[in-house]
């Protein structure tokens, strides 16, 4: 009988070995373990049969700038995101999001790849990846493939990643003049799962002050992290003024589908998502 509390762990040191083990089936990858460890007792979700420790796969580490892309390895921890000069320069909103996750200990262990693969609708970094047209690179013994963030989270805790694939890295296109705002609403100031999490990105059109390439993404308002396409359409080409804000929040209220759960209510989530968006637009308009 498998030991229900402590499943067997394999710790490959090469990607090929990791792929080979994954291909056998039954393995769940573990990086920081901040999501998986609490599932070991089987009370929250199905406990893993076997665990694949990927912490020795150093190729999955590191943050670098590669031509027009910001490339972040899957094993990058939240602490590393917070401390990285490259992130601070190129995508500070991601450091901001990382700073809201758990507290110091979780941030030391938890990884960006884990946040992506765990696919919680409340994953705090995910709206940023959605709002910046990021793509997620996964690999297996068969191939490496690149999946746009918008096609990665396809249902409740379901991703486009196959069982034998590992999340390898994230690639974020670098767009000049892009601005990204992030906002998380949780029950307390640390160690809180979000009630609503939001990322908004756009490029300001210098003279007219209108917004271009607007992306709005949210977590905890649907069964998966989502882009708010209708709201984006309203914001696209518009100036961040009171009227735009009003129209945008009306669209947002119609396109999100929050639920009542143990953390909050659908009513509150809808109200707060729209109020926070309204405030972001107002703040940007008054700059």
């Amino acid at each position: 009988m498998p030991n229900a509390v402590e499943p067997p762990v394999a710790s490959p040191s090469s990607l090929q070995d990791a792929y080979a083990l994954l291909a056998k089936g039954g393995y769940r990858p573990i990086a920081g373990g901040t999501d998986l460890m609490v599932q070991l007792t089987g009370e929250i979700g199905e406990p893993p049969e076997r665990v694949l420790d990927i912490s020795r796969l150093d190729r999955l580490r590191g943050i670098e700038r590669n031509a027009g892309w910001l490339v972040i390895g899957a094993l990058t921890t939240y602490t590393e995101l917070r401390r990285s000069p490259l992130i601070a320069e190129l995508l500070p909103a991601l450091a901001e999001a990382a700073a809201t996750i758990g507290a110091a200990q979780i941030q030391q262990r938890g990884t960006l790849g884990g946040n992506i693969a765990n696919a919680s609708p409340a994953g705090d970094t995910l709206p940023i990846l959605l709002a910046t047209d990021a793509r997620i690179v996964v690999g297996s013994g068969r191939q490496e493939r690149t999946i746009p963030a918008t096609e990665f989270w396809i249902g409740y805790r379901t991703t486009a990643r196959a069982d034998d694939e590992l999340v390898l890295r994230v690639e974020v296109p670098l767009v000049s003049d892009r601005r990204v705002r992030f906002r998380k609403i949780g029950t307390r100031r640390a160690q809180a799962i979000s009630k609503v999490v939001m990322a908004l990105s756009w490029s300001a059109d210098g003279r007219a002050g209108a917004w271009r390439n607007v992306r709005l993404a949210l977590g905890s308002v649907a069964e998966r992290p989502i882009r708010a396409w209708e709201t984006e359409a309203i914001l696209e080409g518009a100036r961040p003024d009171e009227e735009t804000a009003e129209r945008a929040v009306a669209a947002l209220a119609a396109e999100i589908h929050p639920i009542d759960d143990v953390r909050s209510t659908a009513e509150y989530r809808r109200a707060v998502a729209t109020r926070v968006l309204h405030r972001l637009i107002r703040e940007e308009g008054s700059r």
Partner: peptide, 16 residues
Amino acid sequence: YLNDRLATYLIPTALD
């Protein structure tokens, strides 16, 4: 009790 875990029964942290 629905929130019968430390992840869901929240008390103030040092920041709160």
